[in-house]
Amino acid sequence: MSLSSQDAVLLLPFLANGTLEGEELAQVQAAVDQDPALAAELAALENMRATMQADDTAYSPGELGLARLMRDIDAPHQQSTAPRARIWQIAAAILLAVAVGQTVLLTQTDPSGQGYELAGDTGAQFTITVHPDTAESDLRALLLAAEVEIVSGPSALGLYGLALLEGADAQAARARLQAASGIIASLDAVP
């Protein structure tokens, strides 16, 4: 039994992606062989598929995401991580606003005119700078994996102050940050 033209059209995308089998494959292929319009459509679909598969512009979290996963699978059941992430982002934004305000204040009041220091005791254990092309998602995943949080910055020089989360190990955090040389441009312990 041969396929109607309409049935063949419905199955054309699956001829293009190579998933048709057996009788269906033979019937759709026969319909394409007999109909130039179907053959043209198949060519367009094959092009589209090839273009999509070659378009590798989605940068997945990779090893940073795996580190975060390995940390979280031991955690007790909790809600989706997304709300936490948003809270983290909001907290970071507030800290950023405070830091910028403090930096401006220092710039205005410091008679030397330098104004590059962050005001106040932030409790930071590390200061870092990050490479300028770092994606926020990569930095966030690293900070989560290292169990640290931003408590100050960025300063005018691009310095962020990091504090350990409760129960986190300072040496392990330092090792993780040091290992992420693709993200962290400089790392210093705060005395």
């Binding site: 979290p61 995401g65 975060r68 991580t81 992430a85 998602s137 966030r140 995943a141």
Partner: peptide, 8 residues
């Protein structure tokens, strides 16, 4: 960012 969270 949202996609990274959902993947997780």
């Amino acid at each position: 960012h949202e996609s990274s969270d959902l993947l997780h």
